Amino acid sequence: MRIYVPATLDELTGAAVTAGGARWDLPARVVHAVTPALAAAYPEDDDEGHEYAAFLAAADDSLALVAARPAAVPLRAVVSLDVPDGVVTPARAEPGADTAESAVEAAAVPGVEIVAVHVDEPEAAADVRAVLTAADGPDDQDDALDAALERVTDRDLLWYDPTEIGEIPRP
């Protein structure tokens, strides 16, 4: 099963990178995948569209991880992994939380081979910081938050081969 793991760049420093690829210790957390609920929510989309929707949900969750870690590089990161189906279970819906249709819970798995890493371009750091600043500000900054969030989510994440993890540019 292909999963999309929201991450921060500092989490990837422990990846074992070789000339032929990279392995990473998947931490237990909510990740995203093409689930029956996601496919049902977007019946007009094909498999690629469903995968993209799961990927975008992971990118959104990455922003929340960056917000929770003040020392993290202010860029979204998504790690694509292929894991056995038994590694994931349905996500538990928290009362009052808006759980994405693609959300699943992944068990911790050491040494998973990385398929790809997707990261914001370094210039996105200013927009990510603007989202985090506006989110922590007073309620009258809702317009600033909406504008900053739109700028971030309008950006495409750049694709990196697993062997390039150490070369991902940072702001």
Rank of each mutant, 00 (worst) to 15 (best):
residue 137 G to I: 09
residue 145 L to H: 08
residue 66 V to G: 00
residue 62 S to R: 09
residue 61 D to H: 12
residue 72 A to Q: 03
residue 70 P to A: 15
residue 48 E to N: 09
residue 95 P to G: 09
residue 100 A to H: 04
residue 153 T to P: 00
residue 126 A to V: 13
residue 59 A to H: 08
residue 140 D to C: 06
residue 83 V to F: 08
residue 71 A to L: 09
residue 38 L to Y: 07
residue 116 A to E: 10
residue 107 A to D: 15
residue 129 R to L: 14
residue 118 H to E: 00
residue 120 D to E: 04
residue 92 R to S: 12
residue 59 A to D: 07
residue 143 D to I: 04
residue 105 E to W: 08
residue 75 L to W: 03
residue 99 T to Y: 04
residue 132 L to S: 01
residue 38 L to T: 09
residue 102 S to E: 02
residue 49 G to M: 04
residue 131 V to N: 07
residue 116 A to C: 04
residue 67 A to T: 06
residue 146 D to W: 06
residue 153 T to Y: 12
residue 81 L to P: 01
residue 51 E to F: 04
residue 152 V to N: 01
residue 73 V to G: 02
residue 42 Y to R: 10
residue 122 P to T: 04
residue 141 Q to H: 14
residue 146 D to F: 11
residue 102 S to C: 08
residue 80 S to Y: 02
residue 152 V to W: 00
residue 149 L to A: 14
residue 142 D to S: 11
residue 95 P to E: 11
residue 67 A to D: 14
residue 41 A to L: 12
residue 93 A to S: 15
residue 118 H to N: 03
residue 122 P to F: 03
residue 75 L to C: 02
residue 61 D to F: 00
residue 118 H to C: 02
residue 108 A to Q: 07
residue 137 G to D: 14
residue 62 S to H: 07
residue 146 D to E: 13
residue 91 A to G: 12
residue 144 A to V: 08
residue 106 A to W: 06
residue 48 E to L: 12
residue 121 E to N: 08
residue 68 A to V: 01
residue 72 A to H: 07
residue 114 I to C: 04
residue 96 G to D: 07
residue 54 A to I: 10
residue 120 D to R: 00
residue 100 A to P: 01
residue 85 D to N: 10
residue 109 V to C: 03
residue 130 A to K: 05
residue 77 A to C: 15
residue 125 A to R: 02
residue 48 E to Q: 12
residue 126 A to P: 01
residue 106 A to N: 07
residue 45 D to N: 15
residue 96 G to L: 10
residue 149 L to H: 10
residue 41 A to W: 04
residue 73 V to N: 02
residue 119 V to E: 00
